[in-house]
Computed example of a mutant assay.
Amino acid sequence: MSDLKKEAVSMHKAASGLRGVGHHTANPLQQFEAQSRDLDALGALGSLLGAKGEIEKGMTTLVKLTKALDEEWEAEAKLIGEVSTAFDLLDVLIAAAAQAGKG
Rank of each mutant, 00 (worst) to 15 (best):
M1N: 15
M1H: 15
M1C: 14
S2I: 04
D3A: 15
D3K: 15
K5N: 14
K6L: 14
K6Y: 07
E7R: 15
V9P: 02
V9E: 13
S10Y: 13
S10D: 13
S10K: 10
M11I: 09
M11N: 11
M11D: 13
K13T: 10
S16T: 08
G17Q: 02
G17Y: 06
L18T: 00
L18E: 00
R19H: 09
R19T: 08
R19G: 05
R19P: 03
G20H: 14
G20A: 15
G20K: 15
V21N: 03
G22M: 01
G22E: 06
G22D: 06
H24D: 14
H24G: 12
H24E: 15
H24T: 13
T25Y: 04
A26P: 03
N27Y: 12
L29W: 03
Q30S: 13
Q30L: 10
Q31A: 14
Q31Y: 08
A34M: 12
A34L: 14
R37D: 15
R37L: 10
L39V: 02
A41H: 11
A41D: 10
L42Y: 02
G43V: 06
G43F: 05
A44G: 13
A44E: 09
L45G: 02
L45R: 07
G46A: 15
G46Y: 11
G46P: 11
S47K: 12
L49V: 15
L49H: 14
L49K: 14
A51T: 02
A51L: 07
A51I: 00
A51E: 09
A51S: 09
K52D: 00
K52T: 00
K52P: 01
G53C: 00
G53W: 01
G53L: 01
I55W: 03
E56W: 00
E56Q: 07
K57H: 03
G58P: 02
G58V: 13
M59Q: 00
M59V: 00
T61W: 02
L62G: 04
V63W: 01
K64D: 09
K64R: 13
K64Q: 10
T66S: 04
T66A: 02
K67A: 05
A68S: 02
L69P: 04
L69F: 13
L69I: 07
L69K: 14
D70R: 03
E71H: 03
E72W: 10
E76T: 15
K78V: 04
K78Q: 09
I80Y: 03
G81D: 05
E82N: 08
E82W: 03
V83I: 11
T85H: 05
T85D: 13
A86S: 12
A86G: 09
A86Y: 03
D88K: 05
L89H: 14
L90K: 14
D91R: 00
L93H: 07
A97I: 09
A97K: 14
A98Y: 07
A100N: 10
A100P: 05
A100I: 08
K102M: 09
K102C: 04
G103F: 10
